[in-house]
């Protein structure tokens, strides 16, 4: 086990509370704990994993394995805009993979990565529950439907323009 350097703050209090409920179960669910932690911290820094390891008595190496196995978990803070492209059945049939490829090339990052300017993180998801709009992507909490690769690129361009305006 590694030594953890945890700087106490209210976020840890919230996590401790969540873990306390989980710990009452016979076999505390690690994935559930990681979900709660990512909700609270926005991502999963090493100190948080270490904290969970100590609280649940799950080896650090195992936790890290789970975190890197599932694309949903992030060990780096997400960028200002989190792009989630749906790869659910309906969206996939309607060509969401092409959209993903186009954005990946446009932003020059792979799934799970963040652009150098810390503006966009590219991520995938399985179904947002609005298959009628397929293919669909979400940028933070806004939904964009009926996408084509070009349309998706222009939406990203729009975000960039807005960002430049506020900065300029």
């Amino acid at each position: 086990m590694q030594k953890c350097d945890i700087k106490e703050n209210p976020q840890y209090d919230a996590l401790r509370l969540s873990l306390r409920i989980l710990k009452k179960e016979e076999k505390p669910s690690l994935i559930e704990a990681l979900h709660r932690a990512q909700e609270i911290f926005g991502y999963l820094p090493e100190e948080v994993l270490c904290f969970i390891s100590n609280e649940l008595k799950v080896p650090l190496s195992k936790i890290y394995g789970v975190v890197t196995f599932y694309h949903f978990f992030r060990t780096e803070p997400a960028a200002k805009y989190l792009i989630n492209i749906c790869l659910g059945t309906a969206c996939f049939v309607k060509g969401s993979e092409k959209v993903l490829k186009a954005l990946s090339e446009d932003l020059n990052i792979k799934v799970g990565e963040t652009t150098a300017d810390k503006l966009f993180t590219l991520s995938t998801a399985r179904c947002f529950g609005c298959c009628g709009l397929a293919p669909v992507m979400m940028i933070n909490k806004d939904v964009y439907g009926n996408l084509s690769p070009d349309k998706a690129k222009s939406i990203i361009e729009e975000y960039r323009r807005k960002e430049n305006q506020t900065n300029g």
């Binding site: 590694q2 090493e46 994993l49 650090l60 890290y64 394995g65 890197t68």
Partner: peptide, 21 residues
């Protein structure tokens, strides 16, 4: 000891120690 674990998935999987140190 629980030092060794595995990271990533599929053909990218590697054996790691702790948090990939």
């Amino acid at each position: 000891h629980n030092v060794l674990g595995e990271m990533n998935r599929g053909i990218d999987t590697t054996i790691i120690a702790d948090m990939n140190v």
